[in-house]
Amino acid sequence: MKSAGRAEWTKLRTDAGNSWLTLGVVVLTLAAGAAVAMTSRCDATGCGGDPTRLSLTGVLAGQVVVAIVAVLMVGNEYGTGMMHTTLIAVPRRLTVLLSKSAVLTAVTLVTGTVSVLGSLLIGGLVRPGRGFTEEHGFPPLSLTDGATLRAAVGSVLYLVLIGLLSLGTTLVVRNAATAIGIVLALLFVFPILTQVVADPDWQRHLQQIAPMTAGLAVQTTVHTADLPIGPWQGLGVLALWTLGAMTAGGWLLRARDA
């Protein structure tokens, strides 16, 4: 298991594209978060803004790069036939799955933490100038605040889960382009559909099952009672999607010929 993990790490590390992609996660998350933090404003008490969540908007952009890294980890191996070599070297297929997941999780944890802390730092610097001040009812941003800490930790976990969801999906379809298409559809089509469905009950149910909408509920720090789903429960919904994809991927990896 240990050597399998090291092998996966070597494969990931030595593909030049991956270091760019990992850097992309951080840069995109920070840039998008900063752009949103710098354009939104709050002019009066009760403006309804959630500055922590706004600062973390960059996760929306960062998650797709995490998905690419995860998809390529498996998709490239199927594309080039490397998968045969991998499975010959490590015949226990679940070990392959676990070592890939472990390496991906570790990488995402690190890049996710850097991105999320960076976003919060930028948000903390920018937001007093945009009207999110104490007079308007927003205390200064601090990780000791329970809700903010939950948003930060949750966002990192969210990125990890998105990575694993993409990994599992790719194991099922064994093609990078198709896998990324499915993952992006899962993430983005639900929220767009939610905007159109006029019935409030349907809307709420869609928000409860959508991996992205439910998962990102964990970022909310104000009016959490109005959310269609609780912050941790929402992340739990995403975890279920991930579990489903990983189970299907793992099972097919065992059952199928490579």
Partner: peptide
């Protein structure tokens, strides 16, 4: 020449 990156760039460029 990398489909996953190409797909992501176009989809994210349009949908996000």
């Amino acid at each position: 020449r990398r489909s996953a990156v190409a797909v992501t760039m176009v989809v994210v460029g349009m949908v996000l």
